[in-house]
Design a protein around this nucleic acid. Structure first.
Lengths: 170, 170
DNA sequence: CCTACCGATCGGTAGG
DNA sequence: CCTACCGATCGGTAGG
């Protein structure tokens, strides 16, 4: 709180005329971002895009948030554990629902023959994890363009690293 | 330190007969794991495997460490920032070298036509990030088998999510 | 290995 | 918005 205060040019004690507690800030950040994700899911999930198009739209949002709102994303990703009840449970419920709908999308893709028969949970967590650390390495590699990153990551996930002509299987 | 002490059944003060400082523990954990990664790289990099085989071997190590030694991996991944100089610089140098050799492997694969023309840094960070969070979701999904996870992740990265027969490009 | 205790720091309050 | 200050907690030391 002392650091925050000096950043905005006041004493720590004065912050408490603007906020109720340190945790109020944490709540604000976590739920603001969680709502952004939920809203996008509520828009994408029932749409008539193909499952692969849906996955692409959601991954694009993750890339966007983790590269643009990265300090907020860092707080949500690393500090949600310090939410107190009942907020913590509410937050986890939102996350659970988001992950459930995301696996549903993957599973629908598998059923329709668009997506390979991977384990949907493994696919989901691998996707989410990989874009999660954008916040950390993106700022150390500023010369990279967000759209380049987006296209490269999409390409990797959708068609893999192995070159089309190359016969890699033993 | 109070928590650690009670976990091993002593008073916090007594811990200091076994260790020099809290930070000594952090150093121990960070460098023990960093050495494991470096050693594997020194073995794999100059070997006569194909670049893709090398990538597979390194990713397998990351999966192994992040699922088996997960508490140690969590400490290294999240707390290395609190290393003090000169240890911090030394740690970052090791990481930089590891990442450099890893991108070299990817770049060689691209040059040899085995790996698609992705940006090697983006590919690297996406690979590393995705397996990094194994520690967090693996224990919440205990029914998953480590080898299943390994195979699924490899498959995703190497040949992608899109089913072979499916024409997805617009 | 424990008791007793230290200086620093933290989130936060009282009172103006 | 500030000064002054609180109780709790933290890493660590002295001395046995």
């Amino acid at each position: 709180m002392r650091d925050l205060a000096s950043e905005v040019g006041m004493e720590a004690a004065s912050l408490y005329n603007h906020i109720k507690s340190k945790e109020e800030i944490l709540n604000e950040i976590c739920f603001s971002l969680a709502n952004t994700y939920s809203d996008k899911m509520d828009e994408v999930y029932p749409s008539d895009n193909t499952p692969i198009e849906k996955v692409k739209k959601l991954i694009a949002l993750h890339i966007q948030i983790n590269s643009m709102s990265s300090p907020l994303a860092t707080v949500m990703n690393d500090e949600w554990r310090h939410l107190t009840e009942p907020c913590k449970s509410q937050f986890l419920d939102m996350r659970k629902r988001y992950e459930y709908l995301f696996t549903e999308i993957i599973q629908q893709g598998v059923k329709r023959g668009e997506i390979k028969a991977v384990d949907p949970r493994i696919a989901l967590y691998t996707l989410l994890s990989s874009v999660r650390w954008l916040q950390h390495w993106y700022h150390a590699n500023r010369d990279l363009d967000v759209n380049d990153i987006k296209e490269n990551i999409m390409e990797m996930f959708l068609t893999g690293l192995v070159a089309d002509q190359y016969e890699w299987k033993p």
